[in-house]
C-alpha cells in the first residue's frame, strides 16, 4: 500500500486529475470536497500529505490551512497548496492574518499555481513524502 495523500478541492475536475496523478505514481488518494471534510479526514486518516485548494465556497482554504498548521498533532503533515491564486497574494494575506492576532503559522511546504503540469505535481509530492 502506497503513502496516502489527501486532496481537498471542490472542483471535481481537479479531483479527477490529481487522483489520476496520485494513482499513476503509486499513492493512495483520499478525497475531501470541502474544507470541513478536509479537516475531518485529516484527523481521521492522518494522511502523509495534503494537497489543498484555497478558493472554496463557504470555508476558505486559507482558514483550513491555518487550522491545520496551528494544530500540534496535524502541523507536521506537509501541505501542498494548489491554487489559482498567485503565491504572492496568498503569502500577503497569510502575513496579514498572522499580524492581526493570529498565531504565527509556517509557510506551506510547497505552493503550486494552477494550472499545474502533472510531472511537476508528481515531483513535488515525491520530494515532500519521506519514504
Amino acid at each position: 500500500m502506497g503513502k496516502r495523500v489527501l486532496i481537498v478541492d471542490d472542483d471535481p475536475d481537479i479531483i479527477t486529475f490529481v487522483v489520476t496523478v496520485l494513482e499513476e505514481n503509486g499513492y493512495t488518494p483520499l478525497i475531501a470536497k470541502n474544507g470541513e471534510e478536509g479537516i475531518a479526514k485529516t484527523v481521521e486518516e492522518s494522511p502523509d500529505l495534503i494537497i489543498l485548494d484555497l478558493l472554496m465556497p463557504k470555508q476558505s482554504g486559507i482558514k483550513i490551512y491555518r487550522e491545520l498548521k496551528g494544530d500540534e498533532s496535524l502541523k507536521k503533515i506537509p501541505v501542498i497548496v494548489l491554487s489559482g491564486i498567485a503565491r504572492r497574494t496568498f503569502l500577503r494575506s497569510h502575513e496579514a492574518l498572522t499580524e492581526f492576532g493570529g498565531q504565527p503559522v509556517p509557510e506551506p511546504e510547497a505552493y503550486i499555481e494552477k494550472p499545474v503540469e502533472p510531472e511537476k505535481l508528481a515531483e513535488t509530492i515525491k520530494e515532500l513524502i519521506i519514504e
Partner: peptide, 16 residues
C-alpha cells in the same frame, strides 16, 4: 482566475 480553472480542467482532462 476562472480561465485558469478551465485551463486546469482541460490540462487535467488531457492528462487523464
Amino acid at each position: 482566475h476562472y480561465i485558469k480553472n478551465i485551463l486546469s480542467g482541460l490540462k487535467g482532462g488531457s492528462y487523464v
